[in-house]
Design a protein around this nucleic acid. Structure first.
Length: 552
RNA sequence: GGCCUGUUGGUGAAGCGGUUAACACAUUGCCCUCUCAAGGCAACAUUCAUGGGUUCAAGUCCCAUACAGGUCACCA
């Protein structure tokens, strides 16, 4: 039996040879230095915050070098696939501004010349290359059953040896072709493993763009490349795909770091030029003193949707991820307050080489707060409405009913050099402005209660507000005269009009302007803490003010 | 357990043989001020996990120890 016949026996019926496939995926025509990157998720439909970071970075590196970033679906494990998983990943990433030059664009369509971009559709390709390895005597059929594998592992653990199929454990490595032929004819199930040429005692140097050069033992494990269902393993498929799709840079999570020697060996065995690698540190969380990777199963905040539901703008999430990705990003943003993430040049050297980055929620919120403060009143209105439409129908109705009025409210202390920063997320907005709307005011005023501070005497409160509307308030006043009138009111009623005077001689007065302002503020809003009172009164208008005063 | 990586303040970090050990978030205090949010100013690592070594000089180089994380599937 020739090697070719033998390979045909193991993997019959391949459409094209590997040489043909090489021709079908020609070199890309790209400028010098252009990076070809990829994001390669399983179609689980779930987007992990760390995956968003990785896909984002892949996109940035290719686009800042005028390269290509493609999406490849790694569905070699059927069990992980989810209905519409591909589309939901695409949509989710798109909503965060991450898109791809090539790859699937729906469950059935795709764009780009290096496809198919879904691994189960490339089965023939992997078989062709596996066949080549068999012909070259670099791979073999292994009949080890699940039970035998378990037994070997147990034995290895007991005798404290390395776990895996290598050396003398690779029993089927030297089976004769005839014996393999017999067993297959008898219907025995088998898989294809590589004949690892490596030795554990040989150290090789592997280079990572982020971690630097590492010395690791060569891989000597006979990795599975084709599973018994005929589908390749991740390792095999991704190496072939990265080669055929001419990937120059593999940027992925650092859980892959330990399989790097395997991958490098596979590139060598196949005679491929290996791409460059960059392994990104995972996002972690401190779980009662336990620091661990953010987990899809245990941590709701691992899902990107969690923050959207929380009301954090997507842009803010990306800004946060950018600061995590490159530590100098924040300083750059500071220098370029209106800069777009796309204008920043990411650098592998600035990626954290530590073994994990704690996901810092307060920091995210801070970034989010600053981001929202830079929006225009229209943007705040649109985004808040968008949020309310999904999560707060009551507020949605109000916003739709009073668009211009709402925008005026959002504009309080907004369009200025140092804008007001009191919304950390869109879910905060209602909590800060409800009293400006009669419908909400009527509903919530009693629930929250009037928060009078130092002056609580009903008569005195009435006296202050009545005197104020009767004698002092004029809608046409500018801010200075408005406040001067509050000072005058204070004096008339025996309160200090000047805080310094009051602090020096508190006993000379019944209170201060602060107390007077607070009474007016609370009487009209129920809250002792609000944005600028002058703006609030003006927006409410004299009729509403009187109405609310009359309620007391 | 094997292999790999990492360890600078509460957090993210800068630092690449000679700096008062940046910066940002958080926290605390003061100032400003009609409240709040901001903003301004300050405090917060006598020390860079620990122990050795190299050097005139070490967070920075070397070794050991400790701790943490990752990974060891016919999962990706």
């Amino acid at each position: 039996m020739t090697n070719k016949e033998y390979a045909d026996l193991l993997l019959p019926g391949v459409e094209h040879t590997w040489e043909e496939y090489e021709k079908m995926y020609p070199e890309r025509d790209l400028p010098e230095g252009a990076m070809v990157t990829r994001y390669a998720p399983s179609p689980t439909g779930f987007v992990h915050i760390g995956a968003l970071l990785v896909s984002f970075l892949n996109g940035r590196f290719s686009s800042q070098t005028n390269g290509v970033c493609y999406l490849r679906i790694e569905d070699t494990d059927q069990e992980r696939s989810v209905e519409n998983g591909i589309l939901s990943i695409i949509n989710s990433l798109n909503s965060f501004g991450v898109s791809f030059d090539e790859g699937p664009i729906s469950e059935t369509e795709e764009q780009g010349k290096y496809g198919p971009y879904i691994q189960t559709k490339r089965a023939d390709i992997y078989r062709a290359y596996a066949k080549r390895l068999i012909e070259e005597d670099k791979a073999y059929a292994s009949f080890l059953s699940k039970e035998e594998l378990d037994e070997i592992r147990e034995q290895q653990m007991k005798s404290k040896q390395r776990i895996g199929i290598y050396g003398r454990y690779a029993k089927d490595r030297n089976l004769s072709k005839e014996e393999v032929f017999d067993r297959i004819n008898k219907g025995e199930k088998f898989i294809i493993r590589i004949k690892s040429p490596g030795s554990f005692f040989n150290k090789i140097k592997v280079n990572d763009l982020i971690k630097g050069t590492m010395e690791v033992p060569e891989n000597d494990i006979d990795e599975v490349i084709i599973k018994s269902d005929g589908i390749p393993t991740y390792h095999f498929a991704s190496v072939i795909d990265d080669h055929l799709m001419h990937t120059t840079h593999v940027i992925r999570g650092d859980e892959w770091l330990s399989s790097l020697p395997k991958h490098i060996q596979l590139y060598e065995m196949l005679g491929f030029k290996a791409p460059k690698f960059a392994h990104i540190a995972p996002l972690t969380k401190n779980d009662n003193g336990q620091i661990r990777k953010l987990s899809k199963r245990k941590d709701p905040e691992a899902a990107v949707d969690y923050f959207t539901e929380d009301g954090v703008p997507k842009e803010a999430i990306m800004l946060y991820l950018a600061t995590v990705a490159n530590s100098n990003f924040e300083g750059w943003l500071d220098q370029n307050p209106n800069g777009k993430i796309e204008d920043f040049k990411f650098d592998f050297k600035k990626c954290s080489s530590s073994s994990g980055t704690l996901f810092d929620l307060p920091k995210l919120y801070n970034i989010s707060k600053n981001y929202i403060s830079r929006l225009t009143k229209e943007e705040v209105y649109d985004r808040t409405l968008e949020y309310a439409s999904k999560y707060d129908s009551e507020f949605k109705e109000i916003l739709e009913k009073y668009p211009e009025y709402s925008k005026d409210i959002f504009n309080i202390e907004r369009e200025q050099k140092k804008p007001r920063k009191d919304y950390e997320k869109f879910s905060d907005v209602k909590r800060q402005v409800w009293y400006m709307f009669d419908e909400l005011f009527d509903k919530y005023k009693d629930e929250y209660g009037y928060d009078y501070q130092s002056i609580t005497d009903k008569e005195e409160i009435k006296n202050i507000i009545n005197t104020y509307v009767d004698k002092y308030y004029d809608e046409n006043d500018d801010k200075d005269t408005w406040f001067n009138k509050i000072k005058e009111l204070s004096e008339e009623l025996g309160y200090a009009s000047n805080m310094k005077d009051y602090k020096e001689n508190p006993d000379n007065y019944k209170g201060s302007v602060a107390d007077i302002s607070t009474v007016i503020r609370v009487s009209v809003t129920t809250r002792s803490q609000t944005p600028d009172l002058y703006d609030i009164l003006r927006l409410l208008g004299i009729d509403k003010i009187k109405e609310r005063f009359n309620l007391l």
